[in-house]
Design a protein around this nucleic acid. Structure first.
Lengths: 231, 231
DNA sequence: ATCTTGAATAAGTCATACCTTTGGGGCGAT
DNA sequence: ATCGCCCCAAAGGTATGACTTATTCAAGAT
């Protein structure tokens, strides 16, 4: 759990309820009601609500209560909101949004990585590319996933752009979700693995254009598979 | 102010202090100290701190206090964090990050917009392109800025991707900051204006490739100017 | 019908007491 | 002198009750 303590418990309950649409836009909660429902004090309820408010999932107004806000107001970049949506009924929409985001960001990150990656990061990318090849061949999806996440996170980090770097976890969540819901081929496609190797090579060689192209192929491929899977 | 009430006051003070580096990584605050400093109750302090914690600007530990977290942990996509950084000593770095993000996202958004824009959005884009032309010629920077922000926000919204759409405000903040700090030519370049018209046209014509290319030219140009300006 | 006013309601704030965790110092054993 | 254990104090975490303030809604006046 991200946020600790009792407020975290409330969040873990309320956040997903709202993100999944179970608590629809306009639904009203009251502090007192939440106190009773969770058996906690006002202090705790208020802190949890404040956090939801800062994510714009809810708005609190006097004499009215705590009302669930329309989706378009939600802070869709908040890591918790993303996780909650991925876990619930909104999963498909969230995956689509993130898919497009990846298509936009990851190729650009790869290009920057080719210019800014440190020697260590190059070594790590190369090593991860090897691991991907090995685990793909062995059809070890768990290890493959771990290295795949690591690979993309490393590229994003190597871009030298802090905002790109922060998308590492989010991309990780997407990949995890994809594997968990069997949106992945039973054995990773050799072609995709080959592209990862190419990204690693190009980044290490400082070839921004090739890195970008290879990465774009990877993420557009992923997006297409996703679209096919989700209809 | 985004977050209302007394906790908002604290945030408005603490957030910028941290974002600007005035309160450096590792600095320790105590609840009691903040109570006295701001003349508010524990409840209020705690709620403000909770929010800072959810942005990962600080972490709270028993027996230690509230410690400022290293930059790399910050939730750099949080709109408030972005605004605070833009307002303070971190402005240059934040603008650079956002510049790269724009280069990645806006062309992709323009391409999607060409496929998904509604008739209304097309009309709005066209009208805004006209306004840009007019206000640029009149060297009315204020009106130009307003329409420029609106233009980019509309393209992002028209992409049909909620995450892209949410970057509208952020891009607006960047453009505002650029104008306020005279990082803009005294009169908007005719060339840039022409590119906006081209984006509008291409989007309305459903020509994704041309829309993407024109938008890419705009944002890479902005990034280059920024780099030149900031060294 | 419209405006005013007042009462009811729910969030916002405060003060205080108490619980829980944890870092660090002191003490003893080795 | 060093190591390890234990206990205490410090600071955040939670609970509670009283009070304040804003806001809605409706009743009554115009």
């Amino acid at each position: 759990m991200e946020i600790q303590g009792l407020p975290g418990k409330l969040l873990a309950e309320l956040g997903p309820s709202i993100a999944s649409g179970e608590l629809a836009e306009g639904a009203v909660l009251r502090i007192e009601e939440l106190e009773e429902r969770f058996g906690v004090s006002r202090t705790v309820v208020r802190e949890a609500v404040r956090i939801l408010e800062s994510m714009r999932l809810v708005a609190s107004r006097r004499r009215v209560g705590i009302t669930v806000q329309p989706r378009r107001d939600w802070d869709v970049f908040d890591p918790l909101v993303i996780r909650w949506r991925l876990a619930g009924a909104d999963r498909a929409a969230q995956l689509r949004s993130l898919g497009s985001l990846r298509v936009a960001v990851e190729p650009a990150a790869a290009a920057l990585a080719a210019q800014h990656a440190t020697a260590d990061q190059c070594r790590e990318l190369s090593a991860l590319a090897v691991e991907l090849t090995v685990t793909a061949r062995a059809a070890d999806l768990t290890a493959f996933l771990r290295h795949d996440i690591d690979f993309h996170a490393t590229v994003l980090r190597a871009s030298g752009n802090e905002m790109f770097a922060h998308l590492g976890d989010t991309v990780g969540a997407v990949l995890t979700g994809r594997t968990e819901h069997n949106l992945m081929p039973h054995q990773p496609r050799a072609y995709a693995v080959q592209l990862h190797r190419e990204v690693a090579e190009a980044v290490c060689a400082g070839d921004a254009e090739r890195a970008e192209r290879a990465m774009r192929t990877i993420v557009t491929g992923a997006l297409e598979e996703l679209a096919a899977e989700l209809g």
